[in-house]
Structures are given as C-alpha cells and as structure tokens.
Simulated scan of single mutants.
Amino acid sequence: MEQERQSENTEKSSSGTANRSPVAESDEDNERAHPDREALTLPSFVAGSGALDRLVDTARDYARAAASENTLKAYAKDWAHFTRWCRMKGAEPLPPSPEMIGLYMADLAAGSGPSPALSVATIDRRLSGLTWNYAQRGFTLDRKNRHIATVLAGIKRKHARPPVQKAAILAEDILAMVATLPFGLRGLRDRAILLLGYAGGLRRSEIVSLDVHKDDTPDSGGWIEIFDQGALLTLNAKTGWREVEIGRGSKEQTCPVHAVEQWLHFARIDFGPVFVGTSRDGKRASETRLNDKHVARLIKRTVMDAGIRSELPEKDRLALFSGHSLRAGLASSAEVDERYVQKQLGHASAEMTRRYQRRRDRFRVNLTKAAGL
C-alpha cells in the first residue's frame, strides 16, 4: 500500500538553541509528546504505589479518549507552536498570560516573516487548543478577558471571510468515480469505501474505523451488521454513539452493501478492521487498518480520473473536493425529508444539515412574492 510521507520542520531561534541543554531539550520533547503527564498525577500528599500508578495510567487513557485522536494531535501542535513562539519572544508559556496570548493571536493574523497570515477559523482553533492545553495543566484561560476577546473580535471583523465549502459529490459524480476503479482487490476495497461513505454520509474517520464485529479491536470506532435489507452501522462518532442504516441499492454495481460484501469475501476478512491495506501485488489483504487520509486521496484521485469539473485547472479541482464532499453529496442529492438526512449525518440541528446542502432549498420560500412584489 502506498504510504504518504510526512515531514515536520522545527523552528528554533539561534539564542534558544545555544542556551538549551540536552536535558531541557529532552524534557520539552517529552512534554509535547505527552501533554497529560502533568495533568493527571497523584496528589502530593498521597504516597505512590503500584495499584495507584496503574490507576493514574488508566485515568490518562480515559482523558485521552475525551477527544478524537486528530483533535489531540492538533491541540498538541497548537501548544508546541505557542510555546516555541513564547520562547522566541523571551517569555514563558506558563502560567497563562492573556496579554501574551492577545499578542500571539495578533501575530498569527498579521503574519510575520515567512509565516503567512492564518485564517480566522485557524486562529480560533488555535485558541481552543491553548484553552484545552492549559486546562490539562491545571490552569484556566479566560477567553472573555479583554486582552483576548477584543483582539479576537477585531481579527474577525477585519479578516473574516465567508466559509469555503468543499464541493458536493453528486449521484452522477460518484457513479463516474466508481467506474474508474479496477476490479482487483484494491478496486473492490476502494469501491466499497466510496459507495459506503456516500450512502452513509460518513466522515472519512468513521469509514476507516469500522470493524467487522463489536469489540474486535481496541481502536474500533464502530462495527457493521449486514442484513437482507441492508447494513446497520453502529458508530462512535463526534456526537456520541449513533446508528446509520444503509439500504441496498437498485442494482449490484452501485449497491454499497453489495460492494462491502464483495470486498470482505474476496479479501477473506471475517474479523478486525473492515478496510485494510493490501500487499504490493494487490492480491492479499493485510491486517493493518487504513488511515483516514487514504479516503481523502482516493476521492481526489477518482475525481481527477472521472473528469469531474474538468473545466477547472487541476490545482483548483484538487482543492475543491475532500472527504466532506461525500457527506455534502448525500445531503444535496437525497430527495427525502430533511429530518432523515439530519439523522443520517448525525447532526444535532437542522441548520447544520442545511450547511451541507449545496443545491437544495434555495428560493424554496419566496418572501418577495409573499410580500406582494
């Protein structure tokens, strides 16, 4: 299976590098890798023991499970970036200083040196990451403090832009994308991923986290049950546990349930993750669960191969589609009551579901005519 290579560039100031000892550098790396070590420990007045230490480790595991892995990774990067920025400015990240955080946000919005200015959404997310990290270290960051709230309000007023939505993959698009896939083992897998993700309105993390049965693996995000009428997915999603019903299609070539059955049969998978990698020759399934980035790459590749939005330059086409295009496609294409779409996508409000509907309900209510004009 093709693996995506990632590299991370670490910025260091010359003065900070010169004055930092190997021990301090190791401690900083240790803190970045395990931000919860300081957060969950035994009280100072309690003597440690083997049983208590194991409970601390268990509590840390539960604390990590409070947010998704991707969220925790993002928060860890937010903290690493902020602490590096503080040291470059000759300040310390602890305890929290609203004044310094206000300056930090202003720097992010303005852009400095080779670093481009960040979007309002990214700055807001960075602030959420700092709030979470401070909480894990026993501090409270007051986002309503004037040094933070007024700076953020000014950034939003000056730099806010309408949200950039990914394009929806409509019914005719998904059929064209599926048609580009070969009929080998990888093609069967990728066809099942696209059709299941589209029909279920699933997030890419929900697709790859599926297991064949309940409790097959420790990192499972849900499981799938197949019936004569369709498939029932039980998912541990962002909003909690939910069930997603996926009925059988009108023909086998485009039926998501049939596609999953074909993949599981020919890959000889009866336990563990549903979607796994394959051997280099593509003739054998591995036991390694796919990363959710595979779904994003698969969507972009098949969009290109199918010639969708071919009037646009390649760069624009690649930027236009992502994993969320599947969810937006279902919301935009399914001609059913909005409540059923909301339930399928797992949204808490109808307003959130409407954000995913790219072409429906516009001008459905004409207030101009209703007002007599």
Results as ranks from 00 to 15, higher is better:
Ser205Phe: 13
Thr41Asn: 06
Ala171Asp: 06
His81Gln: 14
Val365Cys: 01
Leu232Glu: 09
Leu330Glu: 01
Ile246Asp: 03
Ala168His: 04
Glu2Phe: 13
Leu345His: 03
Ala149Gln: 09
Asn145Ile: 10
Thr234Cys: 09
Ala285Ser: 13
Gln3Asp: 06
Asn236Lys: 14
Ser97Thr: 10
Ser128His: 08
Ser97Arg: 11
Ser322Val: 08
Lys73Asp: 13
Leu141Lys: 05
Gly201Thr: 04
Ser97Cys: 10
Pro43Asn: 05
Leu330Ile: 09
Asp190Pro: 06
Leu330Phe: 03
Gly247Thr: 12
Met177Thr: 00
Trp223Leu: 07
Gly323Ile: 11
Gln229Phe: 10
His213Gly: 13
Gly307Ser: 06
Gly138Gln: 03
Gly240Thr: 13
Ala63Asp: 01
Tyr356Ile: 07
Arg362Pro: 02
Trp241Tyr: 15
Phe266His: 14
Arg339Pro: 03
Leu127Ala: 10
Asn291Pro: 00
His324Trp: 14
Ala65Cys: 07
Glu225Val: 12
Ser14Arg: 10
Ala259Pro: 05
Gly102Met: 06
Glu314Ala: 15
Leu141Glu: 04
Leu72Trp: 07
Val336Thr: 15
Lys156Ala: 13
Tyr198Lys: 00
Asp53Cys: 02
Glu99Ser: 13
His294Leu: 11
Met100Lys: 10
Arg284Met: 11
Ala153Met: 10
Ala33Thr: 09
Ser112Pro: 00
Leu127Phe: 12
Arg186Gln: 15
Leu235Ile: 15
Ala67Gln: 14
Arg60Cys: 01
Leu108Ser: 00
Arg126Phe: 06
Leu367Ile: 07
Gly329Tyr: 05
Ser322Met: 07
Ala319Cys: 09
Leu181Ala: 04
Val295Glu: 04
Ala319Val: 07
Leu326Tyr: 08
Ile226Met: 07
Pro162Lys: 14
Leu290Cys: 06
Arg186Met: 15
Thr41Ala: 12
Ser279Tyr: 02
Glu28Gln: 11
Arg317Tyr: 11
Val208Pro: 05
Ile207Gly: 07
Ala51Gln: 08
Lys12Glu: 10
Arg64Tyr: 06
Ser128Tyr: 05
Glu314Val: 13
Met105Asn: 04
Asp228Cys: 02
Cys86Ile: 09
Glu311Val: 02
Ala24Leu: 13
Val365Gly: 03
Asn366Thr: 05
Val257Ala: 03
Gly197Thr: 08
Val212Cys: 14
Val208Thr: 15
Gly187Trp: 09
Glu338Phe: 01
Ala135Lys: 11
Glu92His: 11
Phe321Pro: 04
Ala319Thr: 11
His347Leu: 10
Ala91Thr: 09
Leu318Pro: 00
Arg5Pro: 08
Leu330Trp: 02
